[in-house]
Every structure is written in structure tokens, then in C-alpha cells.
């Protein structure tokens, strides 16, 4: 018998083992839901898959009686727009800040301590301030994501910039590069795949801030909907929405990973050369 640390399952077994917990969770849910619904057909806590399907059918494929919109898609669109805006702006700010503080010691000196302190502020504590300053509209929700994510990306980019071997920067100078050349042709291209990585890591936080902001003040969005229907104990809506958000997060993450692999093969195959 081999040691446990050397026991590696074969590929099909690995896939099967990976699917097993999902199947178990679904099975346990079905059993529990059936038991509750049998005791009380109007139970709302553990709706059957049929009830959830009906709820989503209603929200996704029938226009809302009040506004005529397809709420599910409207919510998805609003949330994704906010998330994309927030993460996009945060990535831009974070990349620029991290790059200049990492590459230029004379910018690092005044900005790096400030950046460290800002990144320690809990973004949720800023939410009331954002609502006061920017009002309850789109801006404050996007701003919360930016405040929550940009400092993290900036610090990560700063670290990545400083990790690029000094030898490369010296080499570039011996080839006649100016500071601008070094930033533009040596640092930025090498930092782009690392930016994608930082964005992937910060997307979880991005969703958190998005749903929190939508739950507190909004008129549409995935977060708004689940907080709204909570009042009616509508688990048949909340559960599919949570699953949908998870799926969206998974797809976005996968797309970013693929983009990075296709656009920067040297980063994924190679070392630092």
C-alpha cells in the first residue's frame, strides 16, 4: 500500500470524485425539500426544483406586470454593467498607480505609504459616505467597487513591478532606453498578464461590494432582487439567483484566464528568462 501522499487518482476517477460532492448536495437538498413539502405543501424554505424553475420562468421569460421588463435579464444587465465599470476603472487606476509607484522611486516615496493606509480602510465603512457624497444613484455603487478593489490592484501591481528583475532594467538602459521606453516597452507588456491575474483575484471582492451596495439602495440588479424578495421568504427566487451569480462569476473568471493564456503565452509557459 502506497503512502496516502503518493496516492494520485486517475483522470476519470478525479473527475468523478470532483462531481461527487455536487451530486451529494443536490441529493440531500431534494430529500430535505421533499420531506418539508410533504409535511407542509406551502413551505417556502426549501422549494422544489420545479418551484424554482417556475419562479425563474416568471422572472426571465414573462414581462413584469408592473414595468413590462424581463426582470431577470434586466437585473443581470444592470449588475454586470456596474461590475464591469467598477472593476474596469479600478483596474485602470490600480495599474497606473502600481506601475508608477513600482517603477519610479521618486513617486514611490510620496505615494506608497498613502496607498498602504488607503488599502486598509474597510470599503463597506465608506458606503454611507459614498451615498452622502454621490447620492443613491449608479455612481455610488460603482464608486464602492472602485474603492474596494483599486487599492488592492495598485499594491499588487506595485509588487509585481518591483519583482521584475533589476537586470532587465539595467540591460534596457545599456541598450539606450529612456525611462519612458522602459515603462512602455519593458514593464507594461510584462505587467498586463499580472494585471489580469490581479483582476481575477479581486473579482470576488467586487461581487461582494456590488451586491452589498445593491442590497442597500437600488431599484434593480441581482443583489437588489435577492434582498427584495427576502421579505417574502422567496427562496424559490433567491436560490436560483445565487446559483446564477456563481455561474456568472465562474464564466468571467474562466474568460479572463483564457484571454491571458492566449494573449500572453510567454507568461504562462516560461519563467523570467
Amino acid at each position: 500500500m502506497k503512502r496516502l501522499v503518493n496516492l494520485t487518482p486517475s483522470k476519470p476517477v478525479k473527475i468523478l470524485l470532483g462531481l461527487l460532492p455536487f451530486a451529494l448536495i443536490v441529493l440531500i437538498y431534494i430529500i430535505a425539500s421533499d420531506a418539508r413539502l410533504e409535511a407542509n405543501p406551502s413551505d417556502k424554505l426549501l422549494p422544489s426544483f420545479g418551484q424554482m424553475g417556475d419562479a425563474i420562468q416568471r422572472l426571465a421569460f414573462e414581462p413584469s406586470k408592473r414595468t413590462g421588463e424581463y426582470l431577470f435579464w434586466q437585473d443581470t444587465l444592470s449588475s454586470l454593467t456596474r461590475l464591469a465599470l467598477g472593476i474596469g476603472i479600478a483596474a485602470f487606476i490600480g495599474f497606473s498607480l502600481g506601475l508608477v509607484t513600482g517603477a519610479l522611486p521618486s513617486v514611490h516615496a510620496p505615494l506608497a505609504p498613502l496607498l498602504t493606509v488607503i488599502s486598509l480602510i474597510p470599503p463597506m465603512a465608506l458606503l454611507p459616505i459614498l451615498f452622502i457624497v454621490f447620492g443613491l444613484g449608479e455612481l455610488s455603487k460603482v464608486a464602492l467597487i472602485i474603492f474596494g478593489v483599486a487599492p488592492f490592484i495598485a499594491r499588487d501591481m506595485q509588487r509585481c513591478t518591483q519583482e521584475i528583475p533589476q537586470e532587465q532594467l539595467i540591460k534596457a538602459q545599456t541598450l539606450g532606453a529612456s525611462s519612458w521606453h522602459i515603462v512602455w516597452r519593458v514593464l507594461i507588456p510584462q505587467l498586463l498578464p499580472r494585471l489580469i491575474n490581479a483582476v481575477r483575484l479581486s473579482l470576488g471582492a467586487g461581487w461582494l461590494f456590488l451586491i452589498a451596495a445593491e442590497g442597500i439602495a437600488s431599484t434593480d440588479g441581482l443583489g437588489y432582487r435577492i434582498f427584495l424578495v427576502r421579505r417574502y421568504l422567496s427562496m424559490d427566487v433567491i436560490l436560483p439567483y445565487v446559483a446564477w451569480i456563481t455561474l456568472l462569476a465562474f464564466v468571467i473568471d474562466w474568460l479572463l484566464a483564457k484571454t491571458s493564456q492566449i494573449a500572453f503565452p510567454w507568461h504562462h509557459q516560461g519563467g523570467k528568462a
Binding site: 528583475p165 532587465q168 540591460k171 510567454w266 528568462a273
Partner: peptide, 9 residues
């Protein structure tokens, strides 16, 4: 240098 003196990208 001994290493890291070419541009990997």
C-alpha cells in the same frame, strides 16, 4: 548578466 538579462515577453 548570468541570468534575467533578456526580455521574456
Amino acid at each position: 548578466f548570468q541570468q534575467y538579462s533578456v526580455f521574456p515577453h
